[in-house]
């Protein structure tokens, strides 16, 4: 407390401007990547203008921005099913994944039986199964959610199971010496210890479920951003593809950001270093 007030008092004394703004050196990690991205955009624009590259091959960033502004209502409408399906499959994959990991942790028989099969499934190109889901569930949102859940479920199970297994062994022994029940040692020790691993699985699952939904929309949809991108590419509307990609990237980044933010919140609560 005393340190804090001393610091804030010290800040008051510093001339205006010096303390408020971080120095250039401090901003370097933010400025450099942004500057790089900006340079790439400028170069892109210059190349398009100087070499008169056809719009179909590579529209200039300004053209893409214009197109984005023009078709934004359509894109937002298409973005709704994509976002909803992604969130739904992410939630399903996380819930089922953590649930199965708990079962695997407490039943050695099921663990020995299922875990190697789950790991083997990780290696299999699950994408190839996408058309099967269409055969089974039709051209519906359910089929895309089912496929996407299927694709993003495995990383959650495996990282959660590894996390539960990796909980500090001597702390678990302490619980046993205190005659703690399985449920107590799970709730008080295993689960909090596994949270970082669960979150790293969930972050992978978040990107995978967006990918799963996009693939689903590529092969079967009548709506959604994946459908729109394929539709635009068949009509060679490259600027529209880029505009749709931009919206999709924003959605992907926002969803990922939400999970990362939740992780930070949890990390602060269970803060450890």
């Amino acid at each position: 407390m005393t340190v804090e007030t001393a610091q804030s008092r010290a800040l008051d004394l510093v001339p205006f401007g010096a303390a408020q703004f971080p120095s250039l050196r401090q901003l370097r990690p933010v400025l450099l990547p942004v500057a790089t991205a900006g340079t790439v955009l400028l170069l892109w624009q210059a190349v398009c203008l100087v070499f008169r590259i056809p719009h179909v091959i590579l529209p200039a960033p300004t053209e893409i921005a214009g197109e984005l502004w023009r078709i934004l209502p359509t894109l937002l409408k298409e973005a709704i099913p994509t976002t909803l399906d992604s969130v739904a499959s992410f939630c399903l994959a996380s819930g089922l994944g953590v649930g199965l990991a708990i079962v695997l942790t407490y039943s050695p028989l099921l663990r020995d039986t299922l875990y190697p099969n789950l790991v083997a499934f990780q290696l299999v190109p699950k994408v190839a199964l996408a058309p099967l889901f269409v055969v089974w569930l039709g051209i519906t949102s359910e089929s895309r959610i089912a496929f996407s859940t299927f694709a993003s479920f495995f990383p959650v199970v495996i990282s959660a199971a590894v996390g539960f297994e990796g909980a500090d062994a001597s702390t678990l022994r302490l619980c046993r010496s205190l005659t703690a029940t399985d449920w107590q040692s799970f709730r008080l020790v295993r689960f909090p210890f596994a949270l970082p691993a669960i979150f790293s699985g969930m972050k992978i699952a978040m990107t995978m479920s967006v990918i799963g939904v996009i693939i689903g929309e590529f092969i079967s949809a009548k709506a959604g951003l994946g459908f729109y991108i394929l539709y635009a590419s068949s009509r060679m509307e490259t600027a529209a593809i880029f505009a749709a990609l931009f919206v999709l990237c924003m959605i992907g980044a926002a969803l990922y950001g939400a999970v990362a933010l939740a992780e930070r919140h949890v990390r602060r609560h269970y803060g450890r270093r």
Binding site: T207, S233, T238, I241, L245, C249, G252
Partner: peptide
């Protein structure tokens, strides 16, 4: 300069760019 951009790219659904490559 590059690494944060690459990490950013990790997050977005790159598969959606497939139709672009076909164009």
């Amino acid at each position: 300069a590059i690494y944060p951009n690459i990490v950013m790219f990790q997050v977005i659904p790159k598969i959606a760019l497939a139709p672009l490559f076909i164009v």
